[in-house]
């Protein structure tokens, strides 16, 4: 309960979401674009430009998503979970 009220403070709320959006979003988008390039079986220059395009689309969507979810606890959990899952998948596919 204390954590909820702490997270709900405007300054904390905005700071956490901004950090999540910038860093978490960057990490998530990087993992997602690497993973998709791997699934698509791309390499070389083709993979590079594909990753660029997917990354920026994904980053934009992630930032918007981060600020659209009402619950702070929910967005922190989801962002961390997705990052872990995607990076695990990236490591397993040997892309990193």
């Amino acid at each position: 309960m204390k954590l909820e009220s702490f997270l709900a403070k405007p300054a904390i709320n905005v700071s956490i979401r901004t950090i999540l959006a910038i860093l978490g979003g960057y990490s998530l988008s990087a993992a997602l674009s690497l993973l998709l390039a791997s699934f698509a079986g791309l390499d070389g220059r083709e993979s590079e430009v594909f990753i660029r395009m997917i990354f920026f689309i994904s980053y934009t969507v992630t930032i918007i998503w981060t600020f659209s979810v009402n619950s702070e606890r929910k967005i922190i959990t989801q962002m961390c979970l997705l990052n872990v899952l995607l990076w695990l998948a990236v490591l397993l596919t040997g892309e990193a």
């Binding site: 993979s47 430009v49 990753i51 395009m53 990354f55 920026f56």
Partner: peptide
């Protein structure tokens, strides 16, 4: 905006390529 990002993505995504 999107194409501009793609053109300068090299510095933004140093791990890519």
């Amino acid at each position: 905006t999107f194409s501009g990002l793609l053109l300068i993505a090299g510095a933004f995504l140093p791990w890519n390529g």
